[in-house]
Simulated assay, not measured.
Amino acid sequence: MVYTDGCPVLNDIEWRDNCQFPVIRKGETPSDWMKRIWDQLMNYRKNNCLFVSHKRYMVARKILYLWEGDLGSAFEVNIAICYSCDQLVYSNIGCKYGICHFMDKHWSTNCTGNAYCDISFRDYIEFKNKLKSGLTNSFDEKQAIRRYELWMQNAIRRVKRAREIDRKIRAVKVIQEKWLEYFYRPDGLCASELALHYQLLWTVREEMRQINNV
C-alpha cells in the first residue's frame, strides 16, 4: 500500500476560501468564527477541496497590523477546529514546522472521535515494517503512523478511565447495600463499621466526580 495525503487541485474561488476560512474577524469570538464557516467548511471537506494543512483540523488565524498603513498579516493562534470531534481546541502550545503539537495532545487525550486516524491496524504494521527495513522514508506514512499511535494512546486512556469508573461504581453499590443492610437490620453492622462505610462512600463519590471532570 502506498499512502499519501494528496494535494487537491483547487480553482481560484476554492483557493481564496481556503485562505479566508481560518481568519477570525475583528470582534468575533472563536465560537462565532466556527459557526460562521462551519457549513461551507464541511462542504469543502466532503468534496476534498481543502488544503492538506486543513484536512484534519483548522488552526485559527488573526489579522495583525505591524505598522501604520500595514494591510495586515494573518498569524496562527492556539485555537483550532478538530474535525474528529467537531470541537474547538484551545492550548498554550503552538505550531512548529507545520505541525500543531497541541492537536497531537488533543488527539491523544481528549478527542472523542477518530477521523484523524485514517489507517487500519494492518496498514499501521505494514508502514512500521517498511520504515524499520528502510523501504520507505515517506513523510505522509510517518505522519499516518504518528496519528495511529496517538489514537491508540487515547483509546487506552479511555478504556482505563471506563474501567476505573466501573470499579468505583461497583464499590459504591457495595457500600449502599451495606447501608441498607444496617438501616433495615440494626444488628447488621456496629456503629463504628457504619461510620467507616459511610465515610468511604463519600470518598469514592468525590473521586468519581473528579474523574468525570478530567
Rank of each mutant, 00 (worst) to 15 (best):
Met1Cys: 05
Asp5Val: 10
Val9Ser: 08
Val9Leu: 11
Glu14Leu: 05
Arg16Cys: 02
Asn18Pro: 03
Glu28Asn: 01
Thr29Gly: 04
Ser31Asn: 11
Ser31Gly: 02
Lys35Trp: 05
Asp39Gly: 06
Gln40Asp: 15
Arg45His: 12
Lys46Arg: 15
Val52Ala: 11
His54Thr: 07
Tyr57Pro: 01
Met58Leu: 14
Val59His: 00
Val59Ser: 05
Lys62Phe: 06
Ile63Ala: 09
Gly72Lys: 03
Gly72Phe: 07
Ala80Pro: 05
Ile81Asn: 00
Ser84Arg: 01
Gln87Val: 02
Val89Cys: 11
Ser91His: 07
Asn92Met: 12
Ile99Val: 14
Cys100Lys: 01
Met103Asp: 03
Met103Gln: 05
His106Ile: 10
Thr109Ile: 11
Thr109Leu: 10
Cys111Asp: 04
Ala115Trp: 01
Cys117Met: 10
Ser120Phe: 05
Phe121Tyr: 11
Arg122His: 08
Phe127Ser: 04
Lys132Gly: 07
Lys132Glu: 13
Gly134Phe: 02
Gly134Gln: 09
Phe139Asp: 09
Phe139Ser: 08
Lys142Ile: 03
Lys142Phe: 09
Arg146Gln: 12
Arg146Tyr: 10
Trp151Pro: 00
Ala155Ile: 02
Ile156Val: 15
Arg158Tyr: 04
Ile165Trp: 00
Asp166Ser: 13
Lys168Asn: 10
Ile169Leu: 08
Ile175Phe: 07
Trp179Arg: 09
Leu180Phe: 07
Glu181Lys: 04
Phe183Leu: 14
Tyr184Thr: 10
Pro186Arg: 11
Ser192Glu: 14
Ser192Pro: 00
Ser192His: 05
Leu194Trp: 03
Ala195Val: 06
His197Met: 10
His197Thr: 01
Tyr198Ile: 02
Leu200Arg: 14
Thr203Ala: 09
Thr203Met: 06
Arg205Thr: 05
Arg209Gln: 10
Asn212Met: 13
Val214Thr: 14
Val214Leu: 13
